[in-house]
Computed example of a mutant assay.
Amino acid sequence: MTTAVQPPLPSEPALRLRLAPHSDLPRALDGAWWPRSYDLVAELPHLLAGLPHAWGHITSVTVSGATWSAVPDRMLVSHQVVRLRRTPAASTPRTVVLVAPGRGRWDLLVVPPDTTDEAAEPLMSAAAGRLTG
């Protein structure tokens, strides 16, 4: 078992995150996240810091094993332990699953970091339940 400690966050560019409007109806995706790299240890703290407070404290994150570079078993984010899991490489789409006990589960599409602005926009809009036209 390995543990990663969150490095200090330098001044970072804006979080590229688009969330679907709140709904009591289940949906396949709750939004989209467009990280800047495949380094989950570097990217995850920025994502978690940008989530709505109503989502509560995320304690578990599951990512597609094929998408990310090395992932530790857990990491410290804002003085809280977050457990990290990887799904088998080819069995799941590019998503990140966030779980907050007693609050819920959220599935976000992960837009590959090297995606162009033009290609990312429709993916992010569709995952957030908004159509572009």
Rank of each mutant, 00 (worst) to 15 (best):
M1L: 11
M1I: 14
T2N: 04
V5S: 04
P7L: 01
S11K: 07
E12A: 03
A14I: 00
L19A: 04
L19H: 01
H22T: 00
H22E: 15
H22D: 00
P26D: 11
R27H: 08
R27C: 10
A28T: 15
G31W: 14
G31A: 13
A32P: 15
A32I: 08
W33Q: 07
W34V: 01
R36A: 13
R36G: 12
S37A: 09
S37Q: 02
S37W: 03
E43T: 09
L44Y: 03
L44G: 07
H46C: 05
H46D: 06
H46W: 03
L48A: 01
A49F: 00
G50V: 01
L51A: 02
P52E: 09
P52N: 03
A54F: 05
G56Q: 11
G56F: 00
G56Y: 00
H57Y: 13
H57G: 01
H57K: 11
I58N: 02
I58R: 02
T62W: 10
V63S: 06
S64I: 03
S64T: 14
G65I: 08
A66L: 15
T67D: 06
W68G: 11
P72N: 08
R74V: 00
L76V: 02
L76W: 04
V77Q: 01
S78Y: 12
S78N: 13
S78M: 05
H79Y: 15
V81G: 02
V81C: 09
R83P: 02
R83V: 14
T87M: 12
T87I: 05
T87K: 12
A89P: 06
A90R: 10
S91W: 07
T92A: 15
R94Y: 13
R94L: 07
T95Q: 15
V97H: 08
V99G: 03
V99I: 14
A100D: 08
P101M: 09
P101H: 10
P101F: 14
G102W: 14
G102V: 15
G102M: 12
R103M: 09
R105F: 10
R105Y: 09
D107T: 15
L108P: 10
L108W: 12
L108N: 08
L109N: 06
L109C: 10
V111A: 06
T116Q: 00
D117Q: 07
A119Q: 14
A119S: 15
A120F: 11
A120N: 11
E121Y: 07
L123W: 14
S125A: 15
A126E: 13
A126D: 14
A127Q: 08
A128H: 05
A128R: 05
A128D: 07
A128E: 05
G129L: 11
